[in-house]
């Protein structure tokens, strides 16, 4: 089989692409394939992601002036703007997460179906988070005990919660 680009060299590179269930095949010689850069598969997900984030971040019709405001939202640490993030689909640094604020939870919910982490917490630096998570769990438990009219247990929980909240506000060592 000859290369379908140059029609001169034998085709040694065979590329099958399946995009949205549509299959396309290409038969190229190595030189033409290099030129096409189709060999570098790392381009593929990037390309798909751009489209993905573009549509995930579009909330209906673009509003007037939206374009300008998006490039004004900028991470003070790395300088990435929200408009750039939308284009490349990658955040710039850990601080982008707070800089882009309210817009991220929506995106994360669309990707993951959730916007809050319930998994592992770093052992050394995460003690405060662990403490807060424990506190939130106790508050949930308190609600349940009150509903069950289990007032003795509820009172015990309330005192425990109060003590823990005091610890948090005091800025003392937690965990």
């Amino acid at each position: 089989m000859l290369c379908q680009e140059c029609q001169q060299n034998p085709a040694t590179v065979h590329i099958t692409k399946i995009v949205n269930g549509k299959k396309t095949e290409m038969h190229l010689c190595e030189t033409c394939a290099r030129k096409k850069e189709e060999l570098d598969f790392s381009f593929e997900p990037q390309f798909a992601l751009q489209n993905l984030f573009g549509s995930l971040l579009h909330d209906g019709l673009p509003k007037a002036g939206e374009k300008i405001s998006l490039s004004r939202i900028q991470c003070p640490n790395c300088g990435l703007t929200f408009a750039q993030f939308r284009q490349i689909g990658r955040l710039g640094c850990s601080e982008c997460f707070s800089a882009f604020g309210d817009r991220l939870p929506l995106l994360l919910r669309r990707i993951h179906g959730s916007s809050s982490h319930v998994g592992k917490i770093p052992g050394r630096t995460g003690s405060e988070v662990k403490f807060k998570r424990e506190l939130a769990g106790l508050k949930e438990q308190l609600k349940i005990e009150v509903e069950r009219e289990n007032f003795e247990e509820a009172a015990r929980l309330r005192d425990q919660i109060k003590a823990m909240e005091g610890q948090l506000e005091g800025g003392g060592q937690v965990g």
């Binding site: 993951h112 916007s115 982490h117 050394r124």
Partner: peptide, 28 residues
């Protein structure tokens, strides 16, 4: 992960979990 975290501060957010370049990896 635990061994390295013992010596390095990893980017972690109370709400979002471990922070990553691509939003598809955020959390765990």
């Amino acid at each position: 992960d635990d061994l390295l975290e013992g010596k390095i501060d990893f980017a972690f957010d109370e709400r979002f979990g471990y922070l990553t370049a691509c939003p598809t990896n955020v959390g765990t």
